[in-house]
Structure formats: C-alpha cells, structure tokens
Simulated scan of single mutants.
Amino acid sequence: MFENVDNHHTFWHCLHGNGYLKPCPASSIWSQVDCQCVRNTMLPTVTVTTTTTEETVLPTTETISNCLDSNLITFENASNYSKISNGYYGLTWTNAYVLDTQIYPQWSESGFYSAIKSGTWVAFNMNGERMTISIDTPSTFSIKSFVVSSAWNDYVTLSMVSQRASTYYKEASFKIEKNRSTTIELNWFDINAITFYASINNSLHGEVFVIDDLCLDSTTLSTSTSAGIEDKCSLNEIFYQGHCYYLNGVGGECPYGYSLGSETVLSVIADSFIGLNYKTAISNNCCVVTSEKSSNYGINSTDQCNKQGPFTVVPSYNGGGCRNYTTRHSRQLTFCMSN
C-alpha cells in the first residue's frame, strides 16, 4: 500500500499487479510512515530552502541563524561513527548515529558532505531504517528546523510523523537529494516523538539520510514555590501564576499553545528576564507586542535592543520611546504566555 501524492485522503492498494485507489475513513489521512490511515490534523506548513554542495560554506539562512546556540544541535560532541546515546540533549534517540566527515574523505561526493552546515559532524540513520527522537511524558520538545540530504541517492522522499501526548499529531513528506542540502522549517511545538523514514518511490527498502543543525527546544520541569505547584517551562521562560512567559522576536505571533501576555504581567516579571535570552529569534524592533492594542513597553536602542542575549536590560514602561506604538515589524519583540 502506498500514498497517493495527489490526495492524502486516499491511498493505493496493489494486488496481483493491479493498483486500486482506496479512500481513508472520514477524518483520517494516509500515513506512509505508519502504512495506514491515521487521524487527520492540519498538515504543517513546511518551508524548504535548498542549497548546492558548493553553497554550504555560505552564511546559514535566517531560519537557522535565529536558532539560539542552546537549542542548536550540531552533533560536534560525540565519538566517531557512534550511536547517539539516550539522554543526549535530554532525549531518547533510536537508530540515530553520528560521524566526523573528516575521517571519510572518500565520501566527499555524498550527502554526508552536502548536509554539513556547522563543523564537520553529522547525524544519520543506520542502514536506512527509521530514526526516532522522543522524550518521556510529561516532558515535550519542539522542533523548529534542520538541514538534511540523502546520503547516496537522488529522488528520495523523506517522511516524518510526530506524536503529541502519545497520539498522532502531524506529518510531512518532501524530496531530498544527494548533492544538495535542504533546510526544513517545521515549527512543530510540544511533541513527544518524531519519526523519520526515507525511501525511493515508496520502496520497502529504506534510504540513509543525513542531518545537521537540528534546532529544537526541550521542556524542563520546574517548581514554583510561590504558587505551590509544579509546572513545566521551556528554556528562557519564566513561570508566573500558572503560566510560562518568554520574549521573542516574532512580530506578535505566538506559536500553538501560547498567546500574547499582558503588559500588567510584564510590568511585574520583567526583571526576571535578566540573564535569559530570546526564545528563538532576535528582534528587529524593541517595542514589545502584548495583548494590548498598542505597545507601551520597550528596550532602549542604546542598551540591548535587537542584540543577542542574554538580557542585561529588560522592557520598561516607555522604554525606547515606546508609547501607544501600533506599527508591527516582522521580528518585533513579543511577549508570549502559555495557555
């Protein structure tokens, strides 16, 4: 059985040399990773950026450059040709291996080299089998983007399926090549697992793919003594009255599970951002977007406005001249809270 690339709500069933187009049940779509119909959710918007092998030495794309160092996995700190150990970045890794490409110059024309974005190390799936990255509940992680190439062949389809709370969440498929890297921006938030599988023309024989610059953020558990309850907040977030808050340069757009926080709360917890960092992206305007109709909090441009953290100065009332400011910029500083 194989996917119908023209309609995710149907699939091809091959029997005795004949192909039969069959529908999935209502409210479900075909998953080539699971080889069955699964519950449908809105398919993600996947941003694909391709670069040739020669271009891998150029500066990385804006998507990757906005990934904080603490969230960027470059696979530079593992032993040669080694299976990634469980616990690496707090995650469970299944059939995930790393190698230092410098030791394999004979592979210079392969995807092991075209996928390189940082350093010389890359990750790959051994023997073309499925690779899974997961974390034990109640913890979750969010995957923003990664760079990928096919190791040995062109016209390879890389499929991914994710889970949230141990149930199907989202999936996506796209083409990858051997001598051309592809930057995939997923922005899948608060998931428990993601499984990768690569093949050519839906063959049962899997293909090896190569990954570098994996940008993700895993949650950590923290205890708020003031609230007297345990809650979870991700890196660079502040826990206050049952919610997690953070600052990010995203132009007023908070991700799934988050919404704009109020200026009232910002005025109370602003000082707590000292020593923290942008969530994923540096801002290009420092008037803070909140749930109010206009921005009245900001950071002075002479201080740390639009600069890499950690924060040494935090938003203040009328800071940077922000008062009744209504203009929106693509990466305007934004105050988000968990729902």
Rank of each mutant, 00 (worst) to 15 (best):
H8C: 11
H9Y: 07
T10C: 13
F11K: 14
W12C: 03
G19Y: 09
Y20E: 08
L21G: 08
C24I: 01
A26E: 12
I29P: 00
W30F: 11
Q32F: 11
D34T: 05
V38D: 00
V38R: 08
N40G: 14
T41P: 01
T45M: 02
T50L: 15
V57S: 10
P59D: 06
P59V: 06
T61R: 09
I64H: 00
I64K: 02
S65R: 13
C67R: 05
D69W: 03
E76M: 02
A78T: 06
N80Y: 00
N80L: 02
S82E: 06
I84Y: 03
G87L: 13
Y97S: 14
L99W: 09
L99N: 04
T101P: 08
Q102H: 05
S108G: 06
A115W: 06
I116H: 00
F124I: 00
N125L: 12
E129V: 07
R130S: 10
T137V: 15
P138I: 09
S145C: 14
F146M: 11
W152D: 14
Y155D: 15
A172R: 00
N179K: 13
E185Q: 15
D190M: 11
F196L: 10
S199V: 08
I200S: 04
I200A: 01
N201K: 15
V210T: 08
V210I: 10
V210R: 02
L214M: 15
L214Q: 04
L216K: 13
S218M: 10
S218W: 10
S218G: 10
S218T: 09
L221W: 09
S226K: 07
S226F: 07
A227G: 09
D231M: 11
E237T: 09
F239M: 11
G242F: 06
H243M: 10
Y246Q: 03
G249D: 06
G252L: 13
E253C: 06
C254Q: 04
C254P: 03
P255M: 12
P255V: 12
L260I: 05
E263Q: 15
T264F: 04
L266A: 03
S267A: 13
V268E: 14
A270W: 03
T290I: 08
S295L: 00
G309K: 00
G309L: 02
T312H: 11
V314L: 06
S316A: 15
Y317W: 14
Y325P: 00
Y325G: 01
S330R: 10
C336E: 07
M337W: 01
